[in-house]
């Protein structure tokens, strides 16, 4: 399968801070890939570079076989709405909907109106007065109605309620069946989104720590929990990614699949064992004793 997105050894420095450090990963054509990681891990920086809005300090990015930066033919095939996208002060929804098709050759008016109705986006309120959820809704309209061969969603559901998120999932999957495209989506709502993905990339402090088919990511780590000293005994010999202790109980995430040795040991000692979920993995890789060197974005809704 050919790749829609190829990132090779990309480093991006902002002054002394390395936001991305030798990042490499690929997204095959037609994939829905999750880009996961904590705040400040580098997700938005990667997306800016893929969309040609920023350039790597070193390394190489190819989107559909070409470097996107200042390459109009490639840029017209990419849709990217930043999570903090700003609009001119006097803009209302209809201004955005009139201009967007100029930049999106495959624009679908039907998809746009279905989403505008479904999200109940106000027509008369200036966009600068929109709530966080309404801004997210506008970004989703632009992202999906563009029908761009490579579509990037950066935290698409900030402030969106559960019904609005359900609408997003349904229209995304339904419209992808009509017009196939490649999607890279970053989110903190991992449990809710993971069934959408066929592939996941986890970044932590500017580095790629996991790049896997979604179903294979289950083999990366195990979660063990039970009485503390017994859990330690079963986990012995495995790299511990994260450990939590409450009173005499302990749960740990250890690297590696559930082979018969560890499954038998767990059964023998009454330790609960399960494949680590994607959420477990993101937490495990995002846990550090020392503070992160990259700037934090802070906690957002």
């Amino acid at each position: 399968m050919t790749n829609a997105i190829e990132i090779r050894a990309v480093t991006r420095r902002f002054g002394r801070v390395k936001a991305l450090d030798e990042v490499s990963f690929t997204v095959p054509v037609g994939s829905i890939c999750g880009l996961l990681g904590r705040n400040g891990a580098g997700k938005t920086t990667v997306m800016s570079i893929i969309s040609g809005q920023d350039r790597p300090t070193s390394g190489r990015v190819e989107v559909l076989g070409a470097t996107p930066f200042e390459h109009a033919a490639t840029l017209s095939k990419i849709s990217y709405v930043r999570d903090n996208q700003r609009y001119p002060d006097d803009y209302r929804l209809h201004h955005v909907l009139r201009i967007a098709p100029e930049f999106a050759p495959n624009w679908s008016t039907d998809v746009a109106s279905e989403l505008v109705d479904g999200f109940q986006i106000p027509a008369k309120t200036p966009i600068k007065k929109f709530s966080r959820g309404q801004l997210s809704a506008v970004a989703i309209v632009l992202g999906l109605a563009s029908r761009a061969p490579v579509t990037l969603f950066d935290e698409p559901y900030l402030g969106l309620d559960v019904s609005a998120r359900a609408l997003f999932y349904s229209v995304l999957l339904r419209d992808l069946a009509t017009v196939p495209r490649t999607v890279l989506l970053s989110t903190h709502l991992i449990e809710e989104s993971e069934s959408l993905f066929d592939r996941v990339v986890i970044v932590d402090r500017g580095r790629v720590v996991v790049e896997e088919e979604r179903d294979d990511a289950r083999e990366l780590a195990l979660s063990l929990s039970g009485v503390a000293d017994v859990v330690d005994r079963v986990a012995a010999g495995r790299a511990v990614l994260q450990s939590t202790r409450v009173g005499g109980l302990k749960s740990v995430i250890v690297r590696g699949p559930g082979d018969s040795d560890i499954l038998n040991a767990a059964a023998l000692h009454g330790v609960q064992v399960a494949p680590a979920s994607l959420q477990d993995l993101v937490m495990a890789y995002g846990t550090h004793d020392e503070p992160a060197t990259t700037t934090k974005e802070g906690v957002r809704a």
């Binding site: 339904r174 069934s195 959408l196 993905f197």
Partner: peptide, 9 residues
């Protein structure tokens, strides 16, 4: 679409 899962899955 019905189960909200990836088409490849």
């Amino acid at each position: 679409v019905f189960y909200r899962i990836n088409p490849a899955t």
